[in-house]
Nucleic acid binder design. Structure first.
Lengths: 138, 138
DNA sequence: GACAGTGTATTATAAGACTAGTACACTAGC
DNA sequence: GCTAGTGTACTAGTCTTATAATACACTGTC
């Protein structure tokens, strides 16, 4: 249907209402995650405040809160009357620092997952599934 | 040093105050995970309400809430005046809940990564490297 | 200019998570 | 019995999260 130019597929949001994690927080994480996986690129437009509120069956104010926080972090920019877009990426830090950070993040994940009896393999399975079907629905 | 009988090592709790997950939920997940991995066995005593509250720098009421919920699920039993212990009954693993937790942990990682411009691919590379050289130092 | 669609701002309300403080009840060891 | 240590109960209050409703401001298109 939509003959869009940039990203044909819409960026799909998913919420877990039973997780205990605040909804606005889930939206933030989802956008950041989208950047990490590459399904969101600089210049991409995000769903409008009202549209996302309808899709997720939540209050527009909650979407606003998430978007605003991301804007403060310079992850996205808003243009009143137009929409909300992913910012051009900031310059990366040096490679050594970067690699150290990767190891740190990975280590933290494994520690927490391990404490809950979740294996690396399970996580890897999830990630690869994400790569194959980036916008999958539950 | 400690001449304990059953489990020499204390069961260690860790909180992630930045995850957005309610503290009492984290405690619950932690206990369930401990049972899942085998570090908590039937009959093991959990930290006392007051002690855990001190360790985690939280209110005793929050610990009580977590313990009570686990007691309702028959994961543990409390003996007033004595302590809190793991039940014989094994908690149902509930694959759905577990998968949700996997998605949650993975989502957090991706969010943190994305916030720093780290891609999923970089993380995957690191993980596979880990699997191939499990003895390597960070 | 009119209008539809966008983001923004404001106020009020409610529920949940957590803290603080106090008091009570039970158990084991002396 | 006394005491220290355990779980339990209760009330009150704060902060966070989310909703509801309304109004305003800006942009692009016709």
């Amino acid at each position: 249907m939509s003959p869009s130019a940039k990203s044909d597929r819409r960026f799909e949001f998913r919420l877990d209402l039973h997780s205990g994690v605040p909804v606005y927080r889930q939206i933030i994480d989802h956008v950041l995650g989208g950047i990490s996986t590459g399904s969101l690129k600089p210049g991409d437009q995000l769903p409008t405040v009202r549209q996302l509120a309808v899709d997720l069956a939540i209050n527009p104010n909650t979407v606003v809160r998430a978007y605003r926080e991301l804007e403060i972090r310079e992850v996205l920019t808003t243009q009143q009357g137009t929409g909300t877009f992913i910012t051009d990426k900031k310059p990366r830090v040096n490679e050594v620092e970067r690699q150290r950070r990767v190891a740190q993040l990975a280590g933290e994940l494994l520690a927490r997952a391990g404490a809950e009896g979740i294996t690396l393999q399970e996580l890897l399975d999830y990630f690869t599934e994400l790569q194959n079907e980036p916008n999958r629905r539950t």
